[in-house]
Design a protein around this nucleic acid. Structure first.
Length: 475
RNA sequence: GGCGCCUUGGCGGAGUGGCUACGCAGCGGCCUGCAAAGCCGUUUACACCGGUUCGAUUCCGGUAGGCGCCUCCA
């Protein structure tokens, strides 16, 4: 187990994850008012892989990613769709599960819903009111920002410095314009609501995370994460809600940068979004994952057709490597070092550098460079244990499927369509064509051989001639 | 206006006080019947101006430009 350091937003410094305690990670998930885009997928991938890495290092790890399924935007979107909001939210939650499932990184250990946390939310608000940090006003409940001296510590801003512009609405129920809502009274047209000590209503935005994090991970936990756009006000307010009543909160704050499209943050309001499901359809899960880890998690990452094509090519290079260098030993996440090799061998030192890069503020591009470094080395000349080592590294990055030949989409169909019997053997049509091409090549009838290769290409196969004979590779 | 981040070769993107990141693309070559894959080579990368230093892309100061948050947002 090595020391894993993460840059903490609050202190601005790298902080080691305490190996003696459970590494509880709470990452803010989506508000489900539409299907998620690539930008929303970044934290999902980053925190899933971080959890995977920590486990492989021997940390006791628990990853929690919430779903916020009650919110103003959900009411609005449901109304537009002409559906009850609860039904709409459930549908969008299912779509979110489905989309992220396709990333092939498994599920978080817990995925709590805001709507199933109402009791805890009400209890926390009651505590806040009892301790003077919150107040009821016209059925709403607000957090009294001035009662919490540390307010602003995460986003490094002082309440008095904050924009003094006037509120949009005239009749505010707040004591102070900086105060934020914990509970909102039921309004006309909001069809999902709960009873509370302050009348019917529903939780405001930030409170659910304070409660879900504590319910799932306890009062103090290792890492609280999310997109950098959540630093203020979301995470700042979470700190206020939890710490005002003396509940210690996250020890490390970890924020990922934004995906940028056309040099601007990808966001639903900008309209420059690219849906995750579409990216998965078009480029495949490996390319999407490879793309998302191609930059350091804290930096913004450019998105575009060219970037995705690069990721596709990158992933194809890894597939080609495994085609030429099949894995012999069973590898796995826990494979520290392939048993075959001493510490000084290239595979072992690559794995070491790879893990060191991830331990150093989860530097995935540096880790990826180690993978490609070993691939290039082993492509040059046979390196004992290289395929196993590459696989072990890719396992941690969620890309181990690259070691297996991708299932050719047309193959199953073709197979069922035509089965050719030859010498009692069952041959696939493409195998027959390939054999015919070999005959043509032997007869130096290259025109015919090339025609057969074209035919195979139409069927979705690339032919690769090698010293061991021709190979069929799915395109 | 406040707070923070960034500016690296055609593109994406790491990193370092003096040593090839890595990937993609281009060009030339090897291999090949031709391809594909792979390999080798290749286009003197660090926004600009000062300073510190034996030496700065890498530290300090400034200039210009870009981005994020300050309102919903991963």
């Amino acid at each position: 187990m090595r020391e894993v350091r993460i840059r903490d937003t609050l202190s601005g410094e790298p902080r080691a994850i305490d190996p003696t305690e459970e590494a509880g990670i709470y990452a803010c998930g989506p508000t489900v008012y539409s299907r998620i885009h690539i930008g929303n997928a970044r934290p999902y991938v980053v925190f899933s892989l971080l959890a995977r890495f920590l486990r492989s290092e021997g940390y006791r790890t628990r990853l929690v990613v919430n779903v916020t399924d009650v919110n103003d935007k959900i009411y609005a979107a449901a109304a537009r769709a002409g559906e009850p909001s609860a039904e709409f939210a459930a549908k969008m939650t299912a779509a979110y599960f489905e989309d992220t499932e396709r990333l092939g990184l498994g599920r978080p250990d817990a995925e709590p819903l805001a709507t199933e946390t109402i009791a805890g939310i009400v209890a926390l608000i009651e505590d806040l009111i009892a301790s003077g940090h919150a107040y009821e006003s016209g059925g709403d409940v607000y957090f009294r920002v001035r009662s919490f001296g540390a307010y602003g510590k995460l986003s490094n801003r002082r309440p008095e410095d904050m924009d003094q512009g006037e509120e949009a609405g005239s009749a505010s129920l707040k004591e102070n314009r900086l105060d934020f809502a914990l509970w909102k009274a039921h309004k006309e047209g909001e069809d999902t609501h709960w009873d509370s000590p302050w009348g019917p209503g529903r939780p405001a935005w930030h409170i659910e995370c304070s409660v879900m994090a504590e319910q799932e991970l306890g009062a103090s936990f290792a890492i609280h994460g999310g997109g950098s756009d959540l630093v203020f006000p979301h995470h700042e307010n979470e700190i206020a809600q939890s710490e005002a009543v003396g509940r210690p909160f996250a020890r490390i704050w970890m924020h990922n940068g934004m995906i940028e499209s056309d040099a601007a943050k990808m966001s639903k309001s900008e309209g420059n979004i690219f849906q995750l499901s579409e990216a998965l359809d078009r480029f495949g899960r490996e390319a999407v994952v490879a793309y998302l880890i191609s930059g350091h998690y804290r930096q913004p990452l450019a998105f575009g057709a060219e970037q995705m094509e690069q990721a596709v090519a990158q992933v194809e290079r890894l597939r080609n490597f495994f085609r030429e260098h099949p894995v012999r030993e069973a590898g796995g996440v826990s494979a520290e070092t392939p048993s075959c090799c001493s510490d000084e061998t290239p595979p072992a030192s690559r794995i070491e550098s790879f893990r060191e890069a991830l331990a150093d503020d989860f530097n995935t591009p540096r880790a990826l460079a180690e993978v490609f470094g070993l691939v290039a080395e082993a492509n040059r000349e046979e390196v004992h244990g290289a395929p196993e080592a590459v696989l072990a590294m890719l396992e941690i990055l969620g890309l181990s499927s690259l070691a297996k030949e991708k299932v050719h989409e047309g193959a199953a169909e073709l197979k069922s369509q035509v089965v050719v019997q030859a010498h009692g053997e069952v041959l696939r049509p493409e195998d027959v064509l390939l054999a015919e091409r070999e005959e043509a090549r032997a007869a130096r009838d290259f025109e015919r051989a090339d025609a057969l290769r074209d035919r195979l290409a139409e069927m979705g196969w690339t032919v690769r001639d090698s010293a061991d004979g021709p190979k069929l590779v799915p395109r």
